[in-house]
Design a protein around this nucleic acid. Structure first.
Lengths: 218, 218
DNA sequence: TATCTATATATGTCGTACATATGTATATGT
DNA sequence: ACATATACATATGTACGACATATATAGATA
């Protein structure tokens, strides 16, 4: 354990003991360094860790303050297929499916007429699309809109972050096309259920809609 | 945009262009600083950001190397109820429910007889428990075991991280007790479905099991 | 060949100095 | 009295040189 590690731990305890909340000012670098009997350089290194996580921010002449960490601040940097193991990639691939099945209750609680119209619009464009890439784009747009309808900002952002992982695994696993699925459930069927059906029906059909992905799980 | 911000961006591009993967050595601090025409101090600060995210690690005399970032490395530091807004807390509360509903397919794919025995064991202890705190502990154990059965390490760890948030919201919202739920679905019913039923049945009943939480969503 | 010692090395820490952006105080003009 | 410009203060940002420290490698010895 290096000195900077120890400083970091001391800072966490100090922030917790002072019950600092976002917006609160914290002592300046020089004061903190003196209080802990270390050099300003080492203190700065520990503080950089906090800044990286979004827990504090610093401004010239003004000093430093506590901020609201953003869960997704560095997520795209961490969730990089080149850096992760196959197992972790598979985990996130599955997590995406889990969320897709899990948000159904949120959809049924929070859907609005405008939402349904928007989905209808996407489906019309999809049904008229000629090229494969256009259809893919609209498929993505359909699912992204479901996440918007969930009304959960965190889940919506999470899905966006997981998208490259999902694409990567999609290519890696050579997943067969949806249209090859003889029990194929289209977006239009899903929309009809979302309009007039139940969450249970929607889930059953979403599961079928995603069956080629679920087949990859063993 | 500070100089260190620019260095950070340059480093990300450099790492990507070199196709560095975990285990690869990267040039030493002094070389990197010289290559970018900055001081070692500024370079160290940028590198500290990478270390905080777990993307690189450094060892004395050995230099630095690329590592596999751990998604959860700093998660408990970020997901601190004191630092997050009510909206974000609510989002994570819902995310927990979404995952609880969404892992059902994984459960049915990956359950083993040992898993079912383990659940049976927990339920027996729960049914024999006298105190409220003991029942609560076993309730948590039951759900945690479901996450283990999912066979998805990331989801399992995610649930552990989300637990304090869920508890915090549980207290904050004064959620009524499960036993007050007239359509109460016990763990034993859920286990029986897991043994002999379908994923659809399990979801329907899990939804009822968690209804007092779902009632909080609007 | 195995063990010990000396040396080299790259990160970790320190102290000093200066740069820079920004806030505050003061002086001046209308 | 109010508006504007200037000077000064301030805390973070950056640089440099020095030294500490843990660890790897090379060389010497038994």
């Amino acid at each position: 354990m290096s000195q900077v590690d120890r400083i970091e731990i001391n800072l966490y305890e100090y922030f917790r003991n002072e019950n600092f909340v976002p917006g609160d000012s914290i002592p300046k670098e020089v004061e903190l360094a003196e209080a802990m009997g270390v050099s300003r350089t080492a203190m700065r290194e520990a503080l950089t860790r906090f800044k990286t996580l979004g827990i504090i921010e610093s401004k010239k002449n003004r000093g430093m303050s506590i901020t609201q960490p953003d869960f997704f601040q560095n997520m795209n940097r961490i969730l990089n297929p080149i850096l992760l193991t196959k197992e972790t990639m598979q985990d996130f691939f599955e997590l995406r499916l889990v969320i897709e099945m899990g948000i159904v209750d949120l959809l049924f609680i929070r859907k609005t007429n405008d939402d349904l119209k928007k989905l209808e619009n996407i489906i019309e464009k999809e049904e008229a699309a000629k090229s494969k890439s256009e259809k893919l784009k609209l498929d993505i747009e359909f699912h992204s809109t479901l996440y918007q309808i969930s009304g959960n900002h965190t889940i919506e952002r999470f899905q966006k972050i997981l998208m490259p992982i999902f694409d990567y695994m999609n290519h890696d696993l050579h997943i067969r096309s949806q249209e090859e699925n003889e029990d194929y459930i289209s977006h239009r069927v899903l929309l009809k259920i979302l309009e007039n059906g139940t969450a249970e029906e929607f889930r059953m059909n979403m599961h079928k809609h995603l069956i080629q992905y679920f087949e990859q799980i063993k």
